[in-house]
């Protein structure tokens, strides 16, 4: 997934470099604040990731092979910012030593590969799910989910960067259609590989993954996903296509025209009810996504509150 300089335009490269440099500056401040400076550990673990990427494992049933990237693994040992800092140094050296990834595209690569895995997927997915004494199944689930999320975010970022740079003539949606399934599969492989390594090392030296004992609360994850849902709902409704969806499109093609409206009494009364209850028919305002998200979050919160009360009453009785 290393992006070459050829795949980005100068403004996009500069923008990504600025964001990555800011994140790097924050990570350096965080590392300086740590009581015990772990610089030798970060140096050696950076070299470890570099070396581990040279060993390929066979992907069962495909005849192909893959290697670890190491974002979640590094973060689970060094913390989110330490992992980001170390992975950034690996990306810079891969560029300088093996020309793997461009010099100007360093910011893009740091965001796509290090920031999403160490600063988003690790604290929001892996850390709330993983505990030092958790079961093997839970470890695998946490690792696979976190890596899939990291890879999908990276793939979306690569697509956005190349499309905004004017390098790819393919529309954003179609390019995502190519990129996302591949990266979903890579995410699963990386997740399994990361979990296997953690499992092996946890048996031999359990203290290695105990650097950050503060368990992040699931509430933080829920808040983050709620914010992400609102952002996506608000921004994507503005660029949503007005063309019919896949089902409507295929029915129109089969019938060579629109589906005729049913005339039975039941259908008419159901439609009347819908007309009265639908507050935003046909999503005809950009607020539709935001209002939908708010209602859904409120409903979920209400249901969880009620189920908590019911469980409380049952335990009291």
């Amino acid at each position: 997934m290393h992006m070459s300089d050829a795949l980005v335009s100068a403004p996009i490269a500069l923008g990504a470099d600025a964001i990555a440099a800011t994140l790097l500056a924050i990570s350096i401040r965080k590392i300086y604040r740590q009581e015990r400076l772990s610089i030798p550990l970060m140096g050696v673990l950076g070299a470890f990731v570099f070396a581990a990427q040279m060993i390929n494992f066979a992907i069962p049933g495909t005849g192909s092979s893959g290697h670890i990237i190491g974002g979640i693994l590094l973060s689970s040992m060094l913390g989110a910012w330490g992992g980001f800092f170390t992975l950034c140094s690996v990306i810079v050296l891969q560029c300088l030593l093996f020309a793997d990834g461009g010099l100007l595209a360093l910011g893009c690569n740091a965001l796509n590969m290090a920031a999403f895995s160490c600063l988003v997927a690790y604290p929001l997915i892996f850390k709330p799910l993983y505990r030092a004494d958790c079961s093997t199944l839970k470890l695998f689930s946490a690792s696979i989910l976190a890596n899939i999320a990291a890879f999908l975010m990276g793939a979306i970022a690569v697509t956005l960067e190349t499309t905004l740079s004017g390098v790819s003539a393919l529309p954003l949606g179609r390019m995502l259609l190519f990129m996302l399934p591949i990266h979903f599969v890579i995410g699963i492989c990386e997740g399994v590989a990361t979990a296997l390594v953690i499992l092996f090392v946890r048996r031999r030296d359990p203290e290695l993954f105990l650097h950050d004992q503060r368990q992040s609360s699931p509430r933080r994850t829920i808040e983050a996903f709620a914010i992400a849902a609102f952002i996506i709902a608000a921004s994507f409704t503005l660029v949503a296509s007005s063309a019919p969806d896949g089902l409507e499109w295929s029915i129109e093609n089969v019938l060579q025209g629109e589906l005729p409206s049913p005339t039975s009494e039941l259908h008419t009364s159901a439609e009347l009810i819908l007309q009265k209850t639908a507050i935003i028919p046909d999503y005809n305002t950009f607020l539709a996504g935001i209002i939908g998200c708010a209602i859904l979050i409120f409903a979920t919160w209400l249901i969880s509150l009620l189920s908590k009360r019911v469980r409380g009453d049952e335990s009291q009785s």
């Binding site: 070299a47 390929n56 494992f57 296997l196 390594v197 499992l199 290695l208």
Partner: peptide, 20 residues
């Protein structure tokens, strides 16, 4: 040229322990 997952995990895990 590439190893089965279980052997690969042993190799990488061992390398990680040596690194630490």
């Amino acid at each position: 040229s590439h190893y089965p997952l279980s052997l690969w995990a042993h190799l990488v895990g061992e390398l990680l322990l040596r690194a630490v």
